[in-house]
Design a protein around this nucleic acid. Structure first.
Lengths: 182, 182
DNA sequence: ACCTGAACACCGTTCAAGT
DNA sequence: ACCTGAACACCGTTCAAGT
């Protein structure tokens, strides 16, 4: 059988959601695809590259249309979108953190937040650190959410108690940013 | 030869600093101690427990006297202390993040920050989320610092350009908190 | 109590050789 | 180009048996 990159990534996403990040091994993924482990290295240079592709896929799936209103509403929307993308899949936050730490992945929500802050006429320092801080907040917060309840959550269950915590934490950072815009 | 828990942890800290988190394996640590791999399991139930002990050791070493002045100065001090504890050792932030994610480790800076906010008469929500957000900020920020420069940094080189970024990010969150303390 | 010896059940990665 | 077969160089962990 023949597989394209996208097929491998799709399988990997499904497998991640089922067995978690620790269970997602090259050997088991190959087995699911009915292929030898070594075959995966024809599509990806190594496991980190595969994980980066999985992360990009999750972020792309979670992408929504952005209505530009105000800088803070837009940042909030990007952060909620990012959170939902990670919550859509078991260990999503841990995966994103790992890929980000390695400097891999094409889709870059931090850059997006940086751009929003630039457009709001923030100093470059403020924009850079603001975007970074927001990213760390979201990844850190969702990591914590996914420790307790590792199962994927349905869209209906999205209004969990954690959501309030998330928005409160987000407001903390956004309020801090507001004080530094002009 | 006989080893106490503390000896094993000390060796593990030194090894972590030299070879990084990926290089710190049970087998290599055992080899450095001149002992069989299985012997380590007499002192620690598993690798995560060992890593938790290492994290606790790093945090304990970094502990300084806290002069209680104002809530924000104290929080800033706790965060700087936490950052320095992680910067003192290669991959310190990644280690802390992992141990925290597993809910292990005795020393808990988040609890300490929570207490400070409580004393400042913050609502329980604000105190809880404030402490969590600060912890995520520090761990996330330092992780990023240690990606670029994985070598341990001397105390003299602590005033790196990253320090300014750190304090700016910290101020963002602290300012947000200030608005929620009556 | 503390450690050895030796195994068990895995990993990621490489690479000649096949089609 | 894409995959197989088979290996290489590792892991964490367990556990009878020794002292």
């Amino acid at each position: 059988m023949r597989y394209r990159r996208a097929d491998v990534v799709d399988r990997a996403v499904g497998m991640l959601d089922r067995v978690g990040l620790d269970g997602l091994t090259m050997r088991k993924l190959a087995a699911e695809l009915g292929v030898q482990p070594g075959a995966l290295y024809h599509h990806f240079t190594n496991k980190d590259a595969l994980l980066a592709a999985v992360a990009d896929e999750l972020l792309t799936r979670g992408r929504r249309a952005t209505e530009i209103v105000t800088w803070d509403a837009e940042l909030r929307l990007v952060c909620v979108e990012l959170r939902d993308a990670m919550l859509a899949c078991r260990d999503g936050a841990t995966l994103l953190a790992r890929v980000h730490a390695l400097g891999l992945g094409e889709v870059d929500p931090e850059q997006r937040m940086y751009d929003v802050l630039q457009r709001a006429a923030a100093d470059d320092d403020v924009a850079r650190i603001g975007a970074r801080t927001l990213l760390h907040f979201v990844v850190g917060h969702v990591s914590e959410e996914q420790v307790a309840r590792p199962e994927p959550r349905s869209a209906a269950a999205a209004a969990a108690p954690e959501s309030g915590d998330f928005h409160l934490g987000l407001s903390l950072v956004l309020d801090g940013l507001r004080q530094r815009l002009r």
